[in-house]
Computed example of a mutant assay.
Amino acid sequence: MTTTALNQLPIPQHFQADRVGEVWRVPYQERAAAAEAWAKQHHLQPAAKDKTRICLMLVDVQNTFCIPEFELFVGGKSGRGAIEDNIRLCEFIYRNLGVITEIASTMDTHTATQIFHPVFWVNDAGEHPNPMQMIQLDEVKAGIWKVNPAIAYSLAQGNYMALQQHALHYVQQLADAGKFPLTIWPYHSMLGGIGHALVSAVEEACFFHNIARHSQTRFEIKGGNPLTENYSVLRPEVLEGPDRRPIAQKNTRFIQRLLEFDVVIIAGQAKSHCVAWTIADLLTEIQSQEPALTEKVYLLEDCTSPVVVPGIVDFSQEADQAFQRFAAAGMHLVQSVDAIASWPGISL
């Protein structure tokens, strides 16, 4: 089968693979003109005319996770995981520009005082936990780690006891649900900061697609609630406080939008955390509605890497086990180098 028959396009000359691991300004006006010319040259139709509607969901492809100098660079096993993933991801977007209907990017979005950041917790010596440290249920019960009293004014109108009660309830909920213990992360994806932004090369590819296909890039914000983690864009880790009142809710609107597409392709960072959690929540929703819909989900396995911090943590095994579980449920594990039209179950 020829490249034309597979609906693949060449890579535009402006794409530079050796700059994917860097931060730079996208020249929007220049790229917009090039995208319009590209669409005309390759006879690309507006996305609204697509017979097979394909959504590419990018999970947290942000500087904070994807650039080596930033806070939570996902190096994976190779040490360059997110960079290598994003080179393949950009090339995938450009080659399949004519058949991807919409790109939806999730944006991990945080402020300093949140339950998974160091300043939220203190011990009797007034020390904060270290980044990558896990807060265990027994430690909170024993008072080894407590909510920092100084943050009660900002988060609970001065009601420290309510905040402490929530913290104990929170780690209990994680344990009861069989989830990872509460991980203290470095300050990352800070709203208003450079780390929050999309990787420049990926932003450029999304913008190019937006103009060439007349398809607005969708952005889904997650993670701003100070009282819960939000690995998945579809729902936070804990929905209720100790009084059973809701503190957050699942993203029903986005779930339904995803399921309206004929094909949903998922890539991003990190495979072991935000990607796996998002897919798991999507699978739960599908199984509660119509299990056969799992067959419309395709996971770009070569465009995602697990969290690996040499000598500290390695979530590679957990990530691989999660993806095998998704495949067993009916989702497809695919490679970005293969044309979408060649994937099982797709007719363009």
Score class of each variant (00 low, 15 high):
R245M: 02
Q289K: 06
E260D: 02
I247W: 05
F180K: 12
D262A: 10
T284A: 07
R213M: 08
G223S: 03
L282C: 10
Q249D: 03
Y231G: 07
I255Y: 05
V202R: 07
R218P: 00
V275A: 08
A280C: 10
G192H: 00
A267Y: 05
V275H: 11
K222A: 06
H166M: 11
I184E: 11
A197R: 04
A201Y: 01
Y187Q: 13
C274Q: 09
Y170M: 01
A201G: 05
L182E: 12
I247L: 04
V199W: 03
V263T: 08
N210S: 14
V233Q: 06
L174M: 12
P246M: 09
H188A: 04
I279F: 08
A267V: 11
T217S: 01
G195Q: 01
C206P: 00
H209I: 14
D176R: 02
F180E: 09
N225D: 06
A177K: 15
R218G: 01
H214Y: 10
P246N: 13
P186W: 08
F261P: 01
I279Q: 04
L282H: 13
S288E: 15
F180N: 11
A197T: 00
A201K: 08
S189E: 02
Q173N: 01
I266K: 05
A280R: 15
T278L: 01
Y231K: 10
Q249W: 02
G241E: 04
V275S: 06
G241D: 05
Q287W: 14
I184Q: 11
L227N: 13
L182N: 12
K222T: 14
G193R: 03
T183M: 10
R257Q: 15
I194N: 00
W277N: 04
V264L: 09
A167L: 12
I286L: 03
H196P: 02
G195Y: 04
P242V: 06
L258I: 15
Q249G: 11
F261H: 08
E240N: 11
F219Q: 07
Q172T: 15
G241N: 02
L227M: 13
R253S: 08
V199N: 02
F261A: 03
T183P: 10
F261W: 03
I266M: 07
G178A: 12
G224T: 10
V275G: 05
G268P: 04
R218Q: 08
G224R: 15
F219M: 11
G193I: 07
E260V: 00
K250A: 01
Q269M: 10
H214M: 13
S288C: 13
E220A: 02
Q289T: 15
K271S: 07
L234F: 11
A276K: 13
T217P: 03
I279C: 00
V238T: 10
A177L: 10
E240H: 09
L259K: 07
A212P: 04
H273E: 04
V264F: 03
N225Y: 00
C206I: 03
P236S: 12
A175D: 10
I255P: 03
R218E: 02
T228C: 12
L282G: 13
W277F: 14
D262F: 05
L191D: 15
S272T: 08
D262K: 11
P226D: 12
N251E: 11
T228A: 05
I211D: 03
R253E: 09
E204C: 06
L198Q: 12
S189R: 03
G192D: 01
R257W: 15
I247D: 05
R253Q: 08
